[in-house]
Simulated assay, not measured.
Amino acid sequence: MYRESFYRFLMTQIDPGSHDDIAEFANNAQHDSTFPKQEQDYEALADYLELNAGYLPEMSIFDRAYELYQEKMQY
């Protein structure tokens, strides 16, 4: 079964006019040239974001986005 990367999922959340936390995360992540675009693993993504994503004000935003990603990957 094919499972898309977290980055591909996150790019579906882009909404330049939105003030939603996840949309803002997606809007900023699309400009992050070093984002691990093929990654699916929570720990690897969390480690990257904690060290490199100054644009992410709270890790809880990533946690919520990752939960949505997991829900989508169930189907």
Rank of each mutant, 00 (worst) to 15 (best):
M11Y: 01
A23D: 13
Y66T: 07
R64D: 12
Y2S: 09
F6P: 01
Y69I: 08
I14R: 15
F9R: 07
D20W: 05
P16T: 12
D32N: 06
P36W: 07
Q38C: 00
L56W: 05
Q70N: 12
Q38A: 11
R3H: 13
M1V: 14
G17Y: 12
S60N: 13
Y48E: 07
D63A: 11
E50H: 07
E4Y: 02
L51C: 06
Y55A: 01
L10T: 03
A46L: 15
T12M: 10
N27S: 10
K72Q: 15
A23R: 09
P16D: 15
T12V: 00
E39R: 04
Q38P: 00
R8N: 15
R3A: 10
A53N: 02
E4K: 14
L49H: 04
Y69E: 08
T34R: 11
Q70S: 09
S18Y: 10
A29E: 02
F25V: 01
L56V: 09
Y55N: 02
Y66G: 03
K72I: 04
S18Q: 11
L68F: 11
G54P: 00
I14E: 13
R64E: 15
A29S: 12
S60L: 10
K72G: 02
G54M: 02
P57G: 06
E39D: 10
E50G: 03
S33Y: 03
S18R: 11
D41S: 13
F9Y: 15
Q40S: 11
